[in-house]
């Protein structure tokens, strides 16, 4: 039984990482119908930015702050203006292909600085706790708690603040939102900015485990994508649920089913969800339009 909880807890910690990246997916999709295939790279770039600032001798909090500012400008504003705005009216296919191009460019641009993986300082002390036969590290707990707080915080912001509600109104119905006098482009920009901030936070939590490497976004992006779909693409809480399900599912499958086919378990779940509840476990149903 202790073994089971060991797997469960490790899975939750890994899953919360997926959830953070998945949250950005769902936010962008809701606000602007953007499927961002460069989401993994959006986490990778801030990680390298932080390392770069730190290499100039800046303390970590300062370089984190500077990275956020930079990310809002580049991954938020420039991404929206440069890629999403011009392609928005053409639909999903074009944005998908453009973000694929973007991910190739980002990954290989960073590769030019070196193909090595770099260690990344952890927020947490290197300490191990033993609770009833289950060993957990401080970073497992910390990652899980922080990730949950970020997801809940984002949720609260969307549900409780005026700006957040306006953003949700835009996500649900752009036309009536603009009739109500909401500044639609600004609200959409806010979503992109939040996505950029979340990416920086994810980078801070993820990179000590994933290591700063030019291709770290590749597998992270795929897992986050699965998580977002399972949880529900148009619901932010779904991202958390989806991430945890993928993280735990992988671990349990590797231990009790087959290590070689462990990805297939998340996949099977993914297929079942898509076929029977395509809007995701917590998603709203989207009506078929003529």
């Amino acid at each position: 039984m202790a073994d089971f909880f060991q797997l469960l807890f490790s899975g939750l910690a890994t899953g919360s990482i997926y959830a953070l990246a998945a949250l950005g997916f769902t936010l962008l999709w809701q606000a602007s119908g953007t499927i961002n295939f460069a989401q993994g790279e959006f986490v990778m770039l801030p990680a390298f930015a932080m390392l770069a600032f730190a290499s100039f001798g800046m303390p970590m909090p300062l370089s984190f702050f500077l990275t956020i500012v930079l990310a809002i400008a580049v991954l938020g504003w420039a991404f929206k203006r440069g890629i999403v705005d011009p392609l928005f009216r053409y639909g999903m296919m074009q944005i998908v292909v453009a973000t694929i191009g973007l991910s190739i460019a980002m990954r290989n641009g960073v590769r030019l600085t070196g193909a090595e993986a770099h260690p990344f300082p952890s927020l947490f002390a290197d300490r191990i706790y033993n609770i009833a036969g289950v060993t957990v590290t401080q970073s497992d707990i910390g990652t899980l708690v922080l990730a949950m707080l970020l997801v809940i915080g984002t949720q609260a912001f969307l549900a409780r603040t005026i700006t957040g509600r306006a953003m949700q109104a835009v996500a649900q119905n752009t036309e009536s939102a603009s009739v109500l006098g909401i500044n639609v482009p600004r609200m959409i920009f806010y979503t992109f900015a939040i996505n950029a901030i979340l990416a920086c936070a994810a980078a801070l939590l993820v990179t000590p485990v994933y290591l700063a490497k030019f291709d770290m976004g590749e597998s992270l992006g795929t897992k986050a994508f699965f998580a977002a779909v399972i949880g529900g693409f148009n619901n932010s809480r779904g991202a958390l649920l989806g991430g945890l399900i993928v993280g735990v599912g992988e671990n349990l499958a590797a231990a009790y089913v087959s290590a070689a086919y462990k990805d297939a378990v998340a996949l099977a779940l993914f297929m079942v969800v898509i076929l029977f509840k395509p809007q995701g476990l917590l998603g709203r149903k989207e009506e078929r339009k003529v």
């Binding site: 060991q6 797997l7 590797a254």
Partner: peptide, 20 residues
């Protein structure tokens, strides 16, 4: 005999199997 994936992040299941 425990298979893992290239790029795998979470080794808890693999290590647990080795322990078992």
């Amino acid at each position: 005999d425990i298979s893992t994936d290239s790029g795998q992040v979470d080794f808890s299941a693999a290590v647990l199997k080795a322990k078992q």
